[in-house]
């Protein structure tokens, strides 16, 4: 019998990840309800990025199960997980070195079906993808940089390109790895507004963040990792007053 509560969009059940004898994640269970903005915090080396790598299929969980939209994705390859609707950004921006901004937005919309059409030029192969890329260009204010090599643009613009690339494919879940790192106060505020807009459109967001002020004002729910172990979960207010968390993390850094 299923519980009455609706299935979360992303469900990690007792996930562990070992590297040799070292355990990067042990027995982590996380449930992300659809339409929410959830944060994962923890000191460096707590296993936050490992968690993302397990969810996106870059690493395979040593044990436990990952379920996304009722599909068991634990052993799926990355590209299948991406096509199922999970997109991510990276802590260190990872763009395609030879590509223009527009090409990034095109290539991030892979054809779902196989197809002989892929042998056609991108525009004719998938006019819909072309149109969506143009739309994303306008939405993110990147139109002026359309045909520039993305990696040669200023850092702030590169971040936008990465975000646009992640969102052009219309994911259901967006994973953000330290999205405000290197941003000033205004840029962070702008990003917060954008993420709220996306939430209103139905996007679910899971964010790793070091910037406490940002996390506390953005997320509705937080998970705290320390040495690969989940030590707390709850609302920002609950986390702030949790003695275990203060001891492990907030006390030393915030």
């Amino acid at each position: 019998m299923r519980a009455i509560a609706p299935q979360p969009l992303l469900d990690l059940a007792n996930v562990s990840k070992m590297f040799g004898g070292v355990s990067a994640l042990s027995d982590v269970s996380i449930r992300i309800p659809e339409g929410r903005i959830v944060g994962v915090i923890g000191p460096n080396g707590a296993g936050k990025t490992t968690l993302f790598n397990v969810v996106t299929g870059a690493f395979r969980a040593s044990s436990g199960a990952v379920t996304f939209a009722d599909e068991p994705i634990t052993h799926w390859p990355s590209y299948r997980i991406a096509r199922a609707g999970i997109a991510r950004t990276f802590q260190n921006i990872r763009l395609f070195a030879s590509m223009t901004v527009f090409e990034h937005l095109l290539v991030a919309q892979p054809h779902q079906g196989a197809g002989i059409r892929r042998f056609l030029p991108a525009r004719r192969a998938d006019p819909e993808a072309w149109r969506r890329a143009e739309e994303a260009l306008a939405f993110f204010g990147l139109a002026a940089y359309r045909d520039r090599i993305a990696a040669s643009l200023p850092y702030g613009i590169q971040r936008k390109v990465e975000m646009a690339r992640a969102l052009t494919a219309r994911p259901r879940l967006l994973l953000l790895d330290e999205p405000v790192a290197g941003m000033n106060h205004d840029e962070a505020a702008e990003l917060r507004t954008l993420l709220r807009q996306l939430q209103d459109r139905g996007l679910t967001i899971l964010s790793i963040e070091h910037d406490m002020a940002f996390v506390m004002t953005l997320c509705e729910m937080l998970y705290v990792l320390d040495f690969g172990v989940l030590i707390a979960e709850g609302s920002p207010a609950e986390i702030r007053s949790n003695p275990v968390v203060i001891d492990a993390y907030l006390g030393s850094e915030a």
Binding site: P77, A82, R83, R94, L95, P110, R165
Partner: peptide, 13 residues
């Protein structure tokens, strides 16, 4: 350019 990123945008590397 970046095999990992290519996989994560849904390309079958």
């Amino acid at each position: 350019d970046d095999e990992t990123a290519a996989g994560l945008v849904g390309l079958d590397t």
